[in-house]
Design a binder for these strands. Structure first.
Length: 323
DNA sequence: GATATGC
DNA sequence: GCATATCAACGCCGG
DNA sequence: CCGGCG
C-alpha cells in the first residue's frame, strides 16, 4: 500500500517514518524517505556535527515547494518553522540540554546523542540542524569557534575563497587549525575546536579580532561592519555568529531550496576547485562513502583562545553591543 | 508532523 | 473514524 | 507599531 509508514532500524532504535512517499523536493523528485536515507548515508558526519550539542530544528513538514516560507515572529503562518524546545511526544531516548537565552529565559533543546535522534527529527520534517557551539556538558562555554564568511548580495563563492585562504594562513601563524565547509549557498564557514574555557563574549571578541585582522590584510575584500548599508566590501566576517543563541546550519544540513544543496565539509586542498552547487542530497552520499568526513579531525586538538584574545586586547577591542 | 477536540 | 484547529523561535534597537 | 539584523 502506497504511503504506509515505514519503520527503520537505527542502531538500537526503531524510528517510524510517516508518509515516506511525500514529495519533499518535487523538482528533484526527492521524497521524505529520500531525505531520511540521505541522513543515514552521512550519519557519522552529521552526528559528529551535532553530538551532544543543543540543537534547534528547522522543520519543513510540508516539503519545499514554490512559494513555501518559514514562519516568523510577526507572521505566525508559514509552511515551515524553527523549533527550539523539545517537540511534544519525543521518545524517551531523545536527550536534551538546558540552555539559557540572552534574556535569561531558558529551554530544553534537543541534544542528539545518537543517529536515531537525527532520523527521528528528519521524520518531523527537519532539513536543517542548528547546533550551539557548546556541549551539553557545559552550555556556558563554547568548545567551538565559528567563523562565518558571508558574501554580500551578488558576490560569488569564488570571491570568498581568497578570504578563506587568508583566514587559514592567519590561524596557522597562531598555531590554530580551522576546518572549512560550504553553507550550500555562496558562503563559507570555518570551524575551530577550542578548550571550553571562555565565555560567549570572549569567543565573539576573538572572532571580531580575527575579522579585523582580515580587514587589515584584505581591505578590498573584507568588512566587519554590522550594518548592511555600510558594508562596502564583498565579504562580511559575521562575528555576531558567536553570540549566545546564535547558530549556524550544521555540516550536512539540507538547504530548504529546490535543488536540495547541502552544507559540505571540505579539505583545504579542495577549496579552490569546490563548487557549492555540486554538493546536494543526491551527490553527497557517494562522496561521503568514498572519502569520508573531511571534518573527522575537528575535535582532535582543542586550541587555546589566548592568541586571538591577546590580539583583541592589543587592538583594544570591545565587543560592540549585540544586535 | 503530532496532538487534542468535537461530532 | 474523520475533520478541524492548534502548535512548533530567539530579542533588541531605532524610526 | 513596524522593519532591520542573523
Amino acid at each position: 500500500m502506497a504511503g504506509a509508514a515505514e519503520e527503520i532500524r537505527v542502531g538500537e532504535r526503531v524510528v517510524r517514518v510517516s508518509s515516506p512517499d511525500k514529495p519533499y523536493f518535487p523538482e528533484r523528485g526527492l521524497t521524505k524517505l529520500d531525505v531520511v536515507r540521505y541522513f543515514l548515508a552521512v550519519g557519522d558526519g552529521i552526528l559528529r556535527a551535532l553530538r551532544d550539542r543543543p540543537t534547534m530544528l528547522e522543520r519543513w513538514p510540508r516539503g519545499v515547494f514554490e512559494g513555501a516560507k518559514i514562519a516568523t515572529r510577526q507572521d505566525n503562518r508559514g509552511d515551515a518553522f524553527y523549533q527550539k524546545r523539545l517537540p511534544a511526544g519525543a521518545p524517551d531516548w531523545v536527550r536534551t540540554a538546558h540552555i539559557t537565552f540572552p534574556s535569561g529565559r531558558t529551554a530544553d533543546e534537543v541534544a542528539p546523542s545518537e543517529l536515531a535522534v537525527v532520523i527521528w527529527a528528519a521524520n518531523l520534517g527537519t532539513l536543517r540542524f542548528h547546533p550551539w557551539p557548546v556541549s551539553a556538558a557545559d552550555v556556558e562555554r563554547p568548545d567551538q569557534l565559528r567563523i562565518d564568511l558571508d558574501p554580500m548580495p551578488g558576490v560569488e563563492f569564488a570571491q570568498v575563497v581568497p578570504v578563506a585562504h587568508e583566514v587559514r594562513a592567519f590561524l596557522d601563524e597562531l598555531g590554530l587549525t580551522g576546518y572549512p565547509k560550504t553553507t550550500g549557498g555562496r558562503g563559507l564557514h570555518i570551524y575551530l575546536s577550542i578548550e571550553p574555557r571562555w565565555s560567549f563574549g570572549d569567543c565573539r571578541r576573538a572572532v571580531l579580532a580575527l575579522g579585523r585582522e582580515m580587514q587589515r590584510r584584505l581591505p578590498d575584500l573584507v568588512t566587519t561592519t554590522w550594518w548592511r548599508e555600510q558594508r562596502d566590501r564583498p565579504v562580511f566576517v559575521d562575528y555576531n555568529q558567536m553570540s549566545r543563541d546564535h547558530t549556524m546550519a550544521s555540516a550536512y544540513s539540507i538547504r530548504p531550496t529546490p535543488r536540495a544543496l547541502v552544507s559540505a565539509p571540505l579539505a583545504w586542498a579542495e577549496l579552490d576547485d569546490a563548487r557549492p552547487e555540486d554538493f546536494d542530497v543526491v551527490s553527497m552520499p557517494a562522496r561521503f562513502a568514498e572519502r569520508g568526513d573531511p571534518h573527522a579531525g575537528l575535535d582532535e586538538g582543542r586550541h587555546s583562545l589566548e592568541p586571538l584574545l591577546e590580539l583583541a586586547d592589543r587592538e583594544g577591542l570591545e565587543a560592540p553591543p549585540e544586535r
